[in-house]
Amino acid sequence: MEQLPFIAELIISILLVAGGFFSLVGAFGLVRLPDFYARLHGPTKATTLGVGSVVVASMAYFTLHTGELAITELLVTVFLFMTAPVSANFLAKAAMHRKVSCMEGTRGEPWDQ
Protein backbone atom coordinates (compact mmCIF):
# COMPACT_ATOMS: atom_id res chain seq x y z
CA MET A 1 0.00 0.00 0.00
CA GLU A 2 1.20 3.45 -0.91
CA GLN A 3 1.54 6.08 1.78
CA LEU A 4 -1.38 8.47 2.23
CA PRO A 5 -1.29 11.65 4.32
CA PHE A 6 -1.61 10.84 8.02
CA ILE A 7 -4.86 12.75 8.49
CA ALA A 8 -6.50 10.90 5.57
CA GLU A 9 -5.41 7.55 6.98
CA LEU A 10 -6.79 8.52 10.36
CA ILE A 11 -10.18 9.54 8.97
CA ILE A 12 -10.47 6.39 6.84
CA SER A 13 -9.53 4.17 9.79
CA ILE A 14 -12.05 5.87 12.08
CA LEU A 15 -14.79 5.48 9.46
CA LEU A 16 -13.94 1.79 9.04
CA VAL A 17 -13.97 1.01 12.75
CA ALA A 18 -17.17 3.05 13.25
CA GLY A 19 -18.81 1.04 10.46
CA GLY A 20 -17.80 -2.24 12.07
CA PHE A 21 -19.00 -0.98 15.44
CA PHE A 22 -22.44 -0.01 14.16
CA SER A 23 -22.87 -3.37 12.40
CA LEU A 24 -21.88 -5.14 15.60
CA VAL A 25 -24.34 -3.09 17.65
CA GLY A 26 -27.12 -3.85 15.14
CA ALA A 27 -26.40 -7.58 15.39
CA PHE A 28 -26.20 -7.36 19.18
CA GLY A 29 -29.58 -5.64 19.23
CA LEU A 30 -30.94 -8.46 17.08
CA VAL A 31 -29.89 -10.92 19.77
CA ARG A 32 -30.72 -8.88 22.86
CA LEU A 33 -34.00 -7.05 22.22
CA PRO A 34 -37.05 -8.84 23.60
CA ASP A 35 -39.64 -8.90 20.79
CA PHE A 36 -39.75 -8.95 17.01
CA TYR A 37 -40.92 -5.37 16.50
CA ALA A 38 -38.07 -4.04 18.64
CA ARG A 39 -35.55 -6.27 16.82
CA LEU A 40 -36.73 -4.75 13.54
CA HIS A 41 -35.03 -1.50 14.56
CA GLY A 42 -31.52 -2.93 14.68
CA PRO A 43 -30.80 -3.95 11.09
CA THR A 44 -32.73 -1.17 9.37
CA LYS A 45 -30.57 1.50 10.97
CA ALA A 46 -27.48 0.38 12.74
CA THR A 47 -26.46 -2.03 10.01
CA THR A 48 -27.31 0.29 7.15
CA LEU A 49 -25.31 3.05 8.80
CA GLY A 50 -22.48 0.57 9.36
CA VAL A 51 -22.29 -0.38 5.69
CA GLY A 52 -22.70 3.31 4.85
CA SER A 53 -19.58 4.35 6.70
CA VAL A 54 -17.55 1.40 5.37
CA VAL A 55 -18.58 2.46 1.86
CA VAL A 56 -17.62 6.09 2.49
CA ALA A 57 -14.23 4.91 3.79
CA SER A 58 -13.74 2.83 0.65
CA MET A 59 -14.69 5.78 -1.56
CA ALA A 60 -12.25 8.07 0.23
CA TYR A 61 -9.47 5.50 0.03
CA PHE A 62 -9.76 4.81 -3.69
CA THR A 63 -10.31 8.47 -4.56
CA LEU A 64 -7.14 9.50 -2.72
CA HIS A 65 -5.18 6.52 -3.97
CA THR A 66 -5.86 6.70 -7.69
CA GLY A 67 -6.58 10.42 -7.94
CA GLU A 68 -9.82 9.68 -9.79
CA LEU A 69 -13.24 10.15 -8.23
CA ALA A 70 -14.58 6.76 -7.11
CA ILE A 71 -18.35 7.05 -6.88
CA THR A 72 -19.71 3.61 -7.80
CA GLU A 73 -19.65 2.69 -4.11
CA LEU A 74 -22.14 5.45 -3.43
CA LEU A 75 -24.68 3.52 -5.48
CA VAL A 76 -24.53 0.61 -2.99
CA THR A 77 -25.27 2.96 -0.08
CA VAL A 78 -28.06 4.78 -1.88
CA PHE A 79 -29.62 1.46 -2.84
CA LEU A 80 -29.41 0.16 0.73
CA PHE A 81 -30.89 3.37 2.11
CA MET A 82 -33.76 3.11 -0.35
CA THR A 83 -34.51 -0.58 0.24
CA ALA A 84 -34.04 -0.90 4.02
CA PRO A 85 -37.34 0.87 4.89
CA VAL A 86 -39.22 -1.15 2.29
CA SER A 87 -38.06 -4.52 3.57
CA ALA A 88 -38.65 -3.41 7.17
CA ASN A 89 -42.18 -2.41 6.20
CA PHE A 90 -42.84 -5.77 4.51
CA LEU A 91 -41.49 -7.67 7.51
CA ALA A 92 -43.62 -5.63 9.94
CA LYS A 93 -46.72 -6.30 7.84
CA ALA A 94 -45.95 -10.03 7.72
CA ALA A 95 -45.39 -10.10 11.48
CA MET A 96 -48.67 -8.29 12.19
CA HIS A 97 -50.46 -10.70 9.88
CA ARG A 98 -48.97 -13.66 11.76
CA LYS A 99 -49.90 -12.04 15.10
CA VAL A 100 -46.35 -12.10 16.43
CA SER A 101 -46.68 -11.14 20.08
CA CYS A 102 -45.33 -7.88 21.50
CA MET A 103 -43.36 -7.64 24.69
CA GLU A 104 -45.02 -6.63 27.94
CA GLY A 105 -45.60 -2.93 28.45
CA THR A 106 -46.02 -2.09 24.77
CA ARG A 107 -48.55 0.70 24.40
CA GLY A 108 -50.91 0.75 21.44
CA GLU A 109 -52.09 -2.11 19.27
CA PRO A 110 -50.73 -3.57 16.04
CA TRP A 111 -53.48 -3.84 13.46
CA ASP A 112 -53.91 -6.24 10.59
CA GLN A 113 -56.06 -5.65 7.57
Binding site: G26, V51, V54, S58, E73, V76, R98
Partner: peptide, 26 residues
Protein backbone atom coordinates in the same frame (compact mmCIF):
# COMPACT_ATOMS: atom_id res chain seq x y z
CA UNK B 1 -38.71 -18.05 17.41
CA UNK B 2 -40.88 -16.94 14.48
CA UNK B 3 -40.25 -17.19 10.75
CA UNK B 4 -40.18 -13.39 10.51
CA UNK B 5 -37.25 -13.33 12.96
CA UNK B 6 -35.32 -15.69 10.71
CA UNK B 7 -35.99 -13.54 7.65
CA UNK B 8 -34.83 -10.49 9.58
CA UNK B 9 -31.64 -12.32 10.56
CA UNK B 10 -31.00 -13.28 6.92
CA UNK B 11 -31.63 -9.67 5.88
CA UNK B 12 -29.03 -8.43 8.35
CA UNK B 13 -26.67 -11.20 7.28
CA UNK B 14 -26.66 -10.15 3.63
CA UNK B 15 -26.07 -6.51 4.56
CA UNK B 16 -23.08 -7.64 6.63
CA UNK B 17 -21.98 -9.71 3.62
CA UNK B 18 -21.94 -6.54 1.50
CA UNK B 19 -19.74 -4.86 4.09
CA UNK B 20 -17.40 -7.86 4.04
CA UNK B 21 -17.11 -7.74 0.24
CA UNK B 22 -16.28 -4.02 0.30
CA UNK B 23 -13.69 -4.58 3.05
CA UNK B 24 -12.17 -7.41 1.00
CA UNK B 25 -11.96 -5.00 -1.93
CA UNK B 26 -10.09 -2.51 0.25
Amino acid sequence: PDATDRILALDTLYINGIALVILFDL
